[in-house]
Structure formats: C-alpha cells, structure tokens
Design a protein around this nucleic acid. Structure first.
Lengths: 227, 227
DNA sequence: CAGTGGTCTAGACCACTGA
DNA sequence: CAGTGGTCTAGACCACTGC
C-alpha cells in the first residue's frame, strides 16, 4: 500500500498542519504510481483525518480536532477561544420562513408556522469547519434579525432576551455531504461529514430553537458526560 | 453522476435492506460505465449509509441505523431488542494484561497495572456492527473471566457483583478502520468508522472500566440529552 | 492562461469467496 | 474452480483556481 509511505512522509516529513501537499501528479510521480492509486491512498488518510481536501484546491495536512461537547450550553466562540484557537462566524442568510416538515417535528410546531432561519458558516483558524442551519421560534425572540448574528447565538439570547439554553437534546451520525453543506464546506459532493442536530429548551422546558450542524468529519471530537 | 441513477434504483428499485447488489462488473455494464467509476459512485452512497460493503463479498443495501445513547446505562442486548431487532455478542478473547499507556490514562491507573481485557464483536440482525475492547479494573470484579461474557457486561456486573454503571463519560470521532477493527467488522482497511470511548464510574464515583467501541459508520445514530 | 483537481475510459493481475 | 472484489496501470477531457 502506498498509504504507508505517504503517511510516514506526512507524520515525520516535517509537514505542518495546514500546509499544502504537492500536486497529485507530482506526488504520484514521486511515489512511482498513478494518480488513481495515489488518490485512493489520500482518501484513506482523509478518512483518518490526517489530510483533508479543499474542493479543486488541493490536499492539506489536517490540524488538530476541536473538542466539542454539545450538551454544554455551547458557545462556539468561547469554546474555540478556550482551546487556544481562533473562531469566526459568517452569516449567509437570515429570514423568516415557513417551517419544513422536519423542523416542525423537531420544534413541535404546527404545519407552516413561520420560523427564523439562519444559515451560518463557522471557521477555526480560517478553516471552515461547520455549516449550520438554525431554526428559531420567533415568539421568544421578536426582532431577532435586527441583531448582529455573526456571534454566538447564546450571546444574542442572553444580552437581548435574557434567555439561556437550559436543556439540550442532540443526535448525530455520519452523513455524506451534498448541496449547500458540501459547497460551503468546500468539500467534494459525497464526501463524509458529521450531522449534529440539537434541540434546545429554555429554563421553563420550552423548546426555543434547533440547529442542524454539518461538520467536517475531521474537525471535531465529541465528548459528553452524564450519570 | 452515476450516483443519482444508482441511488434511485436502490431506493425505489425494490431492493430490500440486507439484499446483495449485482456484481460490480454487472452494474458497471448495466450503467454503461467502467468499474472504477461505478466504485466511486458506490463509495459515495456508502458515505451516506445507503449501501455497505463486506470485504471481498460484495455490496449490500444498508439496514436502518440503531439508536444509541452512550449516556444511558447502556445494555446492548436490551437496547437492540427494544428496537425490535436481534442482538448477538461474540467473545473473541478475554485475559488479564498490563494496561497500555492509553488505557492507563483513561482508567487513572499506575503504569503496568494488570487489567481484564475483553475483545468482543456485536451484531444486529446477523450483521456485525461494532468491535469492542473492554478494559476492566480487576479489583472490583474478582473472577470476572469465569462468567459468561457473551452477554451485556452490565448484566454480569449486576448479577455477580451488585454493581451498576452510574456516571458515564464518553467521547467519539470518525476514524479510519484498520487492523483488528477493520478485519472483524469485515470492512476494507482504511474505510471510515466511528470510535466511541466510554469511561464508566460506579455509584461511588470510582472508575471501574472503560471501553473502545469501533462502530460501522452506518450502523448508528447517537443521541443524548442533558441540561 | 497554465496547472490543478474531478471525473472518466479500458483495460490488467491477484487473492479470496463460495459453490 | 469460476467469479468476485481489491488494487493497479496509463492514459484522457473538462472546469475551475490562482497567477
């Protein structure tokens, strides 16, 4: 397997996290193999989270995973900063739309109830790691769209609505990334990711919002604790 | 993309969960493409969890995911049965060995402390879904290896030691499967899986065991709830 | 515009599975 | 033992990236 040699080069070859590998044609020549074979080896390392790809831009050495506890009253910016790294949030869209069937079910709403929908993109050290769709019940957050939404939502909730997450239910599983999520994460359509769905309640046990988080599969390690 | 056509055939083509697809050569001919291309399409569907592979045995339509809550005082057999499916556990090995560095750290032990080590393989409806390594502190479970270990450990703990899991810490992330885990799960080395690590405490808050669970990436959806 | 990655063709050999 | 999947060769074209 070419895998081994390539792996060795990456781990001990002085390549640093985030640095770009030589082109596929160059690598395949250097390893005395073809592009197809080389790409299979890279795909295997990609599954391990040792290297990653940006669609049509090439291969890079993967940085360390972020530690993420979805049960903590998560604040993305705090979480990332606490781990000595640099967070960023970009708002892609924000609007009031009728809830889709799936969102309805998650939030426990009647059909076609309007909800705020945010599409956001979050980065760590300038690498996009997650594409998030938030669905928020407007009743609890009138005028939400007026505020700066490129921060952590929990900050907005606290400052403007004196509301905090209290109880969290989440679910996650590996998925193939397609469409919006693949596009925004700059990955090839069909590559693997992790879908984390969270449903959040306020201190009175009422569901106030939910979010669908499409993570790069190599960007996080999930932790949680209970008893 | 061939992906689409193939996907459609699987979803609406009357293929049932668990049924085997025709051979790659047959499919590639039927779709008017080559094996390499067809395999790429299948790999993409595999990432979505729509089809799966058994190493050197062919492609199959994937069954539904199992719902798994690692924070519940998990009993594999109960969990699977409750979801109307059929569980099985196979014991691969059971012995007393010195703790490795990683296990030491998880269990909070001194170097080279002996621990029970179990290797087990668990199936749902006759499909192997997870390869588990259990590491157990012998002090709390003298003579453990004498008992039937092809059940849920929590049953053994309860019946023979009046002990139950109380508090659980877990962590999970996508990994590439290699070596033992790939072999036992019958997947090609390098294919993607989900590594779930649990550290369990008894009612006094003492760590009593931990386990490394290598799941098929398409076999589960993880859930948890807290506040 | 040069070079890149994404996708695809048309073959081949080998080790293993299952009858 | 026939057929299969795993792996590999040696090319090709296209759309996009980044200069």
């Amino acid at each position: 397997m070419i895998r081994i040699a390539l792996c060795d080069q990456i781990e001990h070859g002085g390549l640093k996290a985030g640095s770009k590998l030589p082109s596929e044609r160059m690598l395949s020549e250097r390893f005395g193999t073809t592009r197809v074979t080389l790409r299979e080896a890279l795909a295997s390392l990609e599954a391990d989270g040792l290297v990653y790809r940006e669609d049509r831009r090439g291969w890079f050495v993967a940085p360390q995973r972020l530690v993420y506890d979805p049960t903590r009253n998560a604040n993305f910016h705090t979480m990332v900063t606490d781990q000595g790294r640099s967070p960023a949030t970009r708002l892609l869209s924000a609007s009031l739309v009728p809830a889709t069937a799936g969102v309805q079910r998650l939030l426990g709403l009647q059909p076609l109830t309007p909800v705020y929908r945010l599409q956001r993109l979050r980065s760590v050290d300038n690498r996009v790691v997650v594409y998030v769709e938030n669905y928020i019940i407007p009743e609890y957050f009138p005028g939400l769209l007026e505020h700066n939404l490129e921060r952590s939502l929990s900050d907005v909730y606290r400052e403007h609505y004196s509301t905090a997450y209290h109880r969290v239910r989440f679910q996650l599983y590996p998925v193939g990334l397609h469409g919006d999520s693949a596009h925004h994460l700059k990955v090839t359509t069909g590559s693997s990711g992790l879908l984390v769905t969270r449903v959040n309640q306020n201190s009175e046990g009422l569901v106030i919002d939910c979010d669908l988080e499409y993570w790069r599969h190599d960007a996080i390690v999930i932790t949680a604790e209970t008893g």
